[in-house]
């Protein structure tokens, strides 16, 4: 069997051997319900779509993804199992990818379990299901970007709380970089090229169009690039720090 899939299997079952996956999925479902119904006004809008549900995903992921990723490398380093893992014939890349895919699948599972919402809007009206599927895929893609950042932060420190906080901070920067609060700060002095660059880094901008059902190649590529870059950064960091 391929090493990546062996690591993946171990990581995935470890999520379910501990309460991590159950707690994560439960909280995700409860919060996404609260957000879409009470804050997003899913019913009151009178439209058969899931936009209020998807609009809150960046903010949900901002706290929940760092929580599920904070242990990925920190715990290995703290408990010393990293020495075992790194002296097995598994490359760091295979280990990173296995860990990432396992956590990403848990995120996908949590997302899938929101299907009652989808059933509800189908029962109440005639939504465009193509848009909804595209938005689900977009949300999952974005969660992967959050995850790659959070795993990289987990590689930085043995302390899970520090990893959690660092991950939230970096993810927050990526979420808000396209919003007016940030852009206003640069507006007066920065050249427009820089302004556009900063705005283009925003998860929100890329996610918004996708949540409306437009799966544009540049948005998809953007999230894939973010994932690849941060996973690679995490790999370099863990190579450096494994023995500290």
């Amino acid at each position: 069997m391929n090493m990546t899939s062996i690591v993946f299997k171990r990581e995935f079952s470890s999520f379910f051997a501990t309460p991590v996956a159950y707690v994560f999925i439960a909280i995700f479902l409860i919060l996404s319900g609260i957000f879409s119904f009470f804050i997003g006004g899913l019913f009151e809008r009178g439209q058969a779509d899931l936009l209020p549900f998807f609009n809150f995903h960046p903010w949900l992921y901002l706290f929940l993804v760092p929580a599920i990723a904070m242990r990925s490398w920190s715990e290995e380093r703290k408990s010393g199992t990293i020495e075992l893992l790194m002296t097995l014939p598994i490359t760091t890349w295979q280990a990173t990818l296995g860990k990432f895919l396992a956590a990403w699948l848990v995120l996908g599972l949590a997302l899938t379990l929101t299907f009652p919402l989808w059933l509800t809007v189908n029962y109440l009206g005639n939504p465009d299901n193509g848009i909804i599927i595209a938005a689900y895929l977009a949300s999952w893609l974005m969660s992967g970007a959050f995850l790659a950042i959070s795993m990289c932060m987990s590689a930085l420190t043995k302390n899970q709380v520090v990893a959690f906080i660092l991950a939230i901070v970096v993810c927050f920067l990526f979420v808000v970089s396209g919003s007016n609060i940030v852009l206003d700060a640069f507006q007066d002095w920065a050249p427009s090229v820089l302004l556009d660059t900063i705005a283009s880094f925003s998860f929100l901008t890329h996610f918004e169009s996708m949540a409306k059902g437009v799966l544009a190649a540049n948005d998809v590529v953007y999230f894939l690039l973010v994932m690849a870059t941060w996973l690679y950064a995490g790999l370099l960091i863990i190579e450096q720090k494994k023995a500290d």
């Binding site: 470890s14 408990s79 010393g80 199992t81 075992l84 002296t87 014939p89």
Partner: peptide, 19 residues
């Protein structure tokens, strides 16, 4: 990696996945 295939290693403190 080829070398690690030939080695069995017990690190100090015998770390293992606790869960």
């Amino acid at each position: 990696k080829q070398i690690q295939e030939k080695i069995g290693y017990l690190p100090e403190g015998a770390p293992a996945y606790g869960d």
